[in-house]
Design a protein around this nucleic acid. Structure first.
Lengths: 188, 188
DNA sequence: CAATACTCTTGAAGTAGTTCAAGAAATCAC
DNA sequence: GTGATTTCTTGAACTACTTCAAGAGTATTG
């Protein structure tokens, strides 16, 4: 299962076993918080089943989704993980969730013992960086309507798993406005 | 000069020399394009003097700044560099510019020969990823006014080096609107 | 199988930010 | 140092998106 993903870099069989050995499987119920803002969280999580949303709460108590995660995605509060500081972001299970969790100490241990793992994580980070940069660019270039249409074109199944409200928050608009867009699209 | 930055990871003296050996210094005039969208660019650039803007051009021909770079910053079109595809972004010198450029082949060579370099680049990517994520979060949470004030509070010297127009584009608003905000702030 | 609580929609009124046009101030080029 | 170009400002009209309120539909809970 996980080895499939580890085709991201070049690992030997023993290395894969060694890596996998350092993960622990954890379960969460729908609506549970995996990571809570304000607390230090020294884990990274790899999703094997279910999905999550990452969000931040502003000074008015309003939530803003910054990311979704599905099967075979990594998530975690990277700043908290790296610097042992309090997490800025919350991560909540949107469905019953199974993850493989790895602690910072195990992460560092593997990094020191298995060079391919550093390469693997570097590739992960690089791809995440590219993704985020493209997301910012889209935000600057496109209207809410274009962002919504592109999102559902590129992820046709997302509507089955993520509520309109959460999609709206991710796109940076109100759910009401998405409703208006839908109506408009239906009339065409 | 560069060794200062290489304090990011642990390098021996020889390793630093070996790394530096693979860079070439390049000069650009103010307004020159270092990277041109639509062309493959297989370099990463480390700024020793000057500053740049990264931007993308939309279907209406409008430019949107996605990043600025100053001394001791890296920049490059990571997607083009990694996958040998055409760059999506342009990078333009905003002042006369001196960079240390490293080709993809030298980058890969160093990565294979010097494990500390992979660690170094992984840390760079990780920090970039955190930065971008925080930028997205700010965009979702804050008004243009808050984003502008935070930007100049955190980078008090930026106004001396970056034009209002370019700052506005980076923040995702029109220059006219920044003018309005300034007037409003001055009246307080 | 009610009761409660979310989710999505609709509409009317409001606001943050845009567009266009034009002028003043600063910078650049020769 | 003068003409040309670019930068910043101002104002008036406009629009993309928000807010608030209320109702219908769908899940979730005991």
């Amino acid at each position: 299962m996980k080895s499939h993903l580890l085709a991201y870099s070049h690992f030997s069989e023993e290395e894969i076993a060694k890596v996998l050995y350092h993960f622990e499987e954890k379960q969460f119920k729908k609506r549970d918080l995996v990571i809570e803002a304000g607390h230090v969280d020294s884990y990274q999580y790899f999703i094997t089943q279910g999905c999550v949303r990452g969000y931040i709460v502003d000074y008015n108590g309003k939530e803003h989704n910054i990311a979704f995660g599905f099967e075979e995605f990594w998530f975690g509060d990277m700043e908290s993980f790296t610097n042992n500081t309090k997490a800025h972001y919350n991560y909540q299970a949107l469905e019953d969730l199974t993850v493989l969790a790895i602690s910072k100490s195990n992460w560092d241990k593997i990094s020191n013992e298995i060079p391919a793992f550093i390469k693997y994580s570097r590739n992960l980070f690089r791809n995440a960086m590219i993704f985020q940069q493209n997301r910012i660019a889209k935000h600057l270039m496109q209207t809410a309507e274009q962002r919504y249409e592109q999102l559902i074109n590129e992820n046709p199944n997302i509507l089955q798993r993520i509520s309109l409200k959460n999609i709206a928050s991710y796109l940076g608009v109100t759910p009401e406005f998405i409703s208006i867009l839908r109506k408009k699209a239906a009339q065409k």
